[in-house]
Design a protein around this nucleic acid. Structure first.
Lengths: 198, 198
DNA sequence: CCTGTTATTGGACATGTGCGCAATACCGGC
DNA sequence: GCCGGTATTGCGCACATGTCCAATAACAGG
């Protein structure tokens, strides 16, 4: 296996584990097991585990962003937004959102992480704002503050997803979807239920 | 030292460490060192480290809750809600909200902390819901889903505060207050600006 | 003063962590 | 087919963590 491929494979494996257990709980041995190799190999390609985790976080962030970018790219604004809301938050046994909780908590203490996490959050807000503007141009949405609306929708969804992931019982995924849809419909001048049933 | 005092001392020491290193990185030995005692002593008063952290978190969170409870107790519903929104945002050093971020992230790994954090979050939502219902009874608010409205307002404020505390630059306190006020006004059928200028 | 209870110590134990290293497997160039 | 370097292994080391426990100190009640 070529060095570049091996590095990529290590990062991929780290990413897979991190999605399952959270960044903080991802160990060298976990990653090695995921790849089906030895743990020493990882230190042959990375100076420290920190570097592996940093690379994995970058990749996850970029992947999520690209995925969302594609989702928000085109088509019927209502379907697009409904898809966005549905895709957010924990799907099945996937605890990818735990990554964000870890990142937000650690951001204050780790400048590099803060920069990455901040950049990504901003990118998400911008993405959402563009989708909203597209809907306005199409005459489907009605909204006189797309920037604020994007941040409000994003923050609401973050706050709700946080409850679902951190506490598991208090708020469930159905509540989250229903409440986020309702709020988005109000933000964008849609009839109640438009997003929820789309 | 009396048992109650000792427990309090342990919790205080745990908080001091958590403030410096974060909840996740707070260890038994750290806390013992902070107190200038042995680590075994901590397990004499607490069954597990999880409980120590939960108790430390609860001390701050419950204090905040009690304060807010008093604030939401009576008076003009609009002034009360405006005060709530104003008080929520991170003030000054925003160390209390950082504790919430730590707790949410750690909740997945520490059952007792998760229970405590969940319980307190639920208490906040209930508090807000009661304030909303009071405003409805007074004929000041108009809202046909007080429970959902409470969760939406709370989650939005959490999501916004999170941006302020974790990333510092992207969203500032003024944005947060303006956006949260606007959303709350819509939820409760108020004229735009009612809460922001109250 | 003795005595039993509790507070407190200090360290052992099992487990898990990142990391380093000698040994081996593999593979391209002669 | 040999050989030099690299990829890879498997294990061991040093350290950190939560938990537990026997030994000791402190102290209140008789």
């Amino acid at each position: 296996m070529s060095p570049a491929d091996r590095r990529a494979a290590i990062i991929d494996a780290a990413l897979a584990v991190a999605r399952r257990k959270g960044l903080a709980a991802t160990t060298v041995r976990d990653v090695a097991l995921e790849m089906g190799t030895s743990s020493g190999l990882i230190h042959h390609y990375f100076d420290s585990m920190d570097e592996v985790l940093a690379a994995a976080f970058e990749l996850i962030a970029a992947e999520d962003l690209a995925e969302t970018e594609q989702m928000l790219a085109g088509g019927d604004p209502i379907a697009v937004l409904a898809g966005f809301l549905r895709s957010y938050g924990p799907v099945g046994d996937d605890w990818a959102f735990q990554l964000w909780l870890d990142a937000w908590a650690e951001a204050a203490r780790r400048p590099v992480l803060r920069a990455t996490s901040g950049r990504l959050n901003l990118a998400w807000a911008n993405l959402l704002e563009r989708a909203i503007r597209a809907g306005i141009d199409d005459g489907v949405f009605r909204c006189d503050d797309p920037t604020g609306a994007a941040w409000r929708i994003l923050s609401l969804v973050d706050g709700l997803a946080l409850q679902v992931v951190a506490h598991r019982t208090i708020v469930d995924r159905a509540d989250m979807l229903a409440w986020a849809s309702l709020a988005a419909e109000r933000e964008l001048g849609l009839e109640p239920g438009t997003l929820a049933t789309a």
